[in-house]
Design a protein around this nucleic acid. Structure first.
Lengths: 107, 107
DNA sequence: GCAATATTTTCTATAAAATAGAATAACTTG
DNA sequence: CAAGTTATTCTATTTTATAGAAAATATTGC
């Protein structure tokens, strides 16, 4: 199986983190906040589409809307293969980083 | 600062792991072993070149040779910015994965 | 010395992923 | 239904990843 790319890892984890509240805008906000940098619209939606193609996530539309405008929100869920891919990524990371010095206090 | 790509992370960590023994071939062997998959020659040397350009690693030639053929081996070292980039990648990962369920026994 | 052989890196081409943001769609309110 | 707002789709460009042939350079044996 191919390794998860960085952006795939981040997007999958943000969907996991956001639980039932994961759609384009909240995902983008979360990623911007946790990484501390700017993410364009495309840099969120393009990987989302690819993750759907790969079967790592699925989605549904929630029609309840209490806010003003906007299209239907597309809510994402991790699929079972998506969870497996994350698990596998984690195991690789554990091996790779094993013993790496931890500079607890930084800056 | 831009995030490290997956392959950059892996290559940097393998140089760190191999200490004074990091050159193209040993890096490739290490990465193949730890990931359990095939890596072409280009998939090692191309990111190495880019990491040099970015200043994350530097290199020197060791002329001592006791093996049969081959060009001069190019040995790589992590630079200080390279170490910083790793540290930053790790901090992001810690945030992202915080609380992720750990399936200790798998398969 | 030099042909044969082995090892390592350089080079170049192609595919995949990341990034950017304009355009489009769709919902609410008045 | 027009105006205003929010969300996604679409498309183009840049950057990374991947592959492996070609070139370079070393040792061995005659």
């Amino acid at each position: 199986m191919k390794l998860l790319s960085r952006q795939e890892e981040i997007v999958l984890l943000s969907i996991w983190r956001l639980g039932g509240e994961a759609y384009g805008v909240t995902i983008r906000e979360y990623i911007s906040k946790i990484t501390g940098k700017y993410w364009s619209i495309g840099s969120i939606y393009v990987p989302l589409d690819r993750l759907i193609e790969k079967g790592y996530i699925d989605y549904y539309f929630k029609d309840i809307t209490n806010r003003k405008g906007g299209r239907r929100k597309r809510y994402y869920n991790l699929s079972s293969p998506g969870m497996d891919a994350l698990q596998e990524a984690r195991e690789l990371q554990n091996s790779l980083w094993q013993g790496f010095p931890d500079f607890a206090i930084k800056k």
